[in-house]
Amino acid sequence: MSHGPIELLVVKFPGNKFTGQIVPALTELVDNGTVRIIDLLFVQKDADGDLTIVELTELDEDERAALDPVVADVSGMISDDDALLFANALEPNSSAGLLLFENTWASRFVSAVREADGEVIVSERIPRAVIEELAAVEAED
């Protein structure tokens, strides 16, 4: 097991279609070693607000066949509670994909840093809003 930073992504889609167009982009990221998917599940909210959790194996045959080779592991680390927590924010007639993945590119970089006797002492994701604020300040100068 490598040790890149792990990230959870929740992607919302209108209606009940999950993946279709995002699969090729995801496949590319996996194939070139940028990310490794370690858990994946989908949540649907119908018109009445009822929730259904859908596993990879329960997708339509086409979607499953496209996604299956991309997913390294369905670890189940994303719990029912996690899924329901995020699904609560969905509006009726929409769905979401929950994706837990490792940033494998970062793991390779960290290895290179270590081999060069370097040490990563800070690794933080900076919120987009912070960058926008800084860019605005710079634009004023």
């Binding site: 599940l41 009822d50 959790i53 859908v54 329960e58 189940g76 719990s79 029912d80 329901l84």
Partner: peptide, 15 residues
């Protein structure tokens, strides 16, 4: 919520 095969009964990420 409809049930399905896989177990997702762990403590979860958020918790």
């Amino acid at each position: 919520m409809r049930r399905r095969a896989m177990r997702r009964r762990g403590p979860g990420l958020v918790g």
